[in-house]
Amino acid sequence: MYVRSAAAATAAFLGLALSVCGAGSASAAPGPDWLSNPIVYAHRGASAYAPENTLEAIDLAMEMGFDWVENDVQRTKDGELVVIHDDTLARTTDVEQVFPDRKPWRVKDFTAAEIARLDAGSWFGPEFAGARVPTLRQYMNRVQRNQQRLLLEIKKPELYPGIEQQTLDVLGATGWLNEDRVVRRLVVQSFSAASVRTVHELRPDLFTAFLGTPAVADLPRYAEFTDRINPWYTTIDADWVAAVHKLLGAHGRALEVDTWIVDDAATALKVQDMGVDGIITDKPDVVREAVGGY
């Protein structure tokens, strides 16, 4: 089990206050030099070491000392929100064995009860046999129990009309739209700019992120409805990051950059030097050791 030092815990709290709460001048850079280490996000939980998007993966991230986890949300045939990355069940469950005649095994074609029958852990390793695809309600309750923070991705919203409001409804029902969590513990993101805009319009107090790498000339349009631009690390350089930081986002402070998916020390150091605010990774321990993040 990994134990985070008191210094790292303090840095996490102070860094979060600057990164998420908007402390300091809105036009300033994301943080002072002594808090320049990026936040490390456990992508789909500690997904290099446990089956992605399961409760086991976020529990492991907690044991390793990581506050921030990331997940993906989709919708079942009967309208339940579940936490899974792919829009099919084949890669990360035993659906082909349990329902051999239901190809292509799309999430939206199965009920929540059917998905609850599936083993979402054995594909990763026998020690995780019996892990399940959690519902979003189950997931939010576990994140709360673990006292973690969440970067929630609405996955492929074009497949699920109205998923933005439904996601907010679940967040509200589980207590995740109270002021403390909205300000300090929750960010909603998507590859769909329209979906991010919809979330912002429905809940202007909520922090949002757009997944992608817009051209510099287009960044002001995104700044109207989002607080972060979260790009794939191969698509950015220091000049692009600096251009993002020059703009004020939807909450009146400098836009931030959280990049993905960085799993090795050399790349972590490279994006840190570019000035990113956060690193999303399957191997949070590797990235933390490289950049001193939290």
Results as ranks from 00 to 15, higher is better:
Gly175Phe: 07
Asp109Ile: 08
Glu153Met: 07
Ala17Asp: 06
Ser122Gly: 02
Arg137Val: 11
Arg91Ala: 06
Thr226Trp: 02
Leu248Asn: 13
Gly252Arg: 07
Ala223Gln: 05
Leu89His: 00
Glu224Gln: 15
Asn230Tyr: 04
Pro220His: 05
Ala29Arg: 09
Asp72Ala: 02
Asp218Phe: 02
Ser25Gln: 11
Asp78His: 05
His43Gly: 08
Thr226Gly: 04
Phe207Thr: 07
Arg137Trp: 05
Asn37Lys: 15
Glu56His: 10
Glu70Leu: 03
Asn178Ile: 15
Ile58Ala: 12
Lys283Asp: 11
Thr235Glu: 10
Ser5Arg: 10
Thr234Pro: 09
Thr54Asn: 05
Gly45Met: 06
Pro100His: 08
Ser195Ala: 13
Ser190Arg: 05
Thr281Leu: 00
Tyr49Ile: 09
Val187Glu: 11
Arg117Phe: 09
Gly172Phe: 14
Gly79Gln: 09
Val170Pro: 11
Ser27Pro: 00
Gly275Trp: 09
Ala42Pro: 01
Gln138His: 01
Ala290Phe: 14
Leu159Thr: 01
Gln147Met: 12
Val143Trp: 10
His200Gly: 03
Leu211Ile: 13
Ser36Asn: 10
His200Asp: 11
Ala238Gly: 08
Asp264Leu: 06
Ala116Thr: 06
Ala215Trp: 10
Asn230Ser: 09
Lys77Asp: 03
Tyr41Pro: 15
Gln148Val: 04
Ala11Glu: 14
Ala254Phe: 11
Ala23Val: 14
Asp67Phe: 01
Ala116Met: 10
Leu269Gln: 12
Gly278Lys: 12
Ala193Leu: 13
Ser47Lys: 10
Trp68Pro: 02
Gln74Val: 15
Glu80Arg: 13
Gly121Thr: 11
Asp169Ala: 10
Thr135Leu: 01
Asp87Cys: 01
Tyr294Lys: 04
Ala57Gly: 00
Ala209Glu: 09
Ile261Val: 10
Ala8Thr: 14
Ala112Trp: 03
Glu114Gly: 07
Leu255Ala: 08
Ala250Thr: 03
Leu55Ser: 01
Glu153Ala: 04
Ser19Tyr: 00
Pro30Leu: 07
Thr267Leu: 14
Lys103Ile: 04
Glu153Tyr: 05
Ala120Ser: 06
Pro30Ala: 06
Ser122Trp: 02
Asp263Ala: 09
Ile279Ser: 06
Leu151Gly: 00
Leu206His: 03
Val188Leu: 12
Pro161Leu: 09
Ile163Val: 12
Ile261Asp: 00
Leu35Arg: 08
Pro157Gly: 06
Gly292Thr: 11
Tyr139Asp: 07
Phe124Tyr: 11
Pro157Lys: 02
Ala48Pro: 02
Leu55Asp: 00
Pro126Trp: 05
Asp33Met: 12
Ser195Glu: 03
Val69Asp: 01
Leu247Glu: 04
Arg228Ile: 15
Arg142Ala: 15
Leu186Trp: 14
Val262Thr: 07
Tyr2Leu: 08
Val271Ser: 00
Phe13His: 13
Gln144Pro: 00
Ala266His: 10
Ile261Ala: 03
Trp232Tyr: 15
Val82Ser: 04
Val82Thr: 02
Ile236Glu: 08
Val98His: 04
Ile154Glu: 00
Ala193Ile: 14
Ala265Gln: 05
Leu60Trp: 11
Ala266Lys: 10
Thr259Ile: 07
Glu256Pro: 00
Arg117Ser: 09
Asp33Cys: 15
Ser5Met: 14
Val183Ala: 12
Asp94Asn: 11
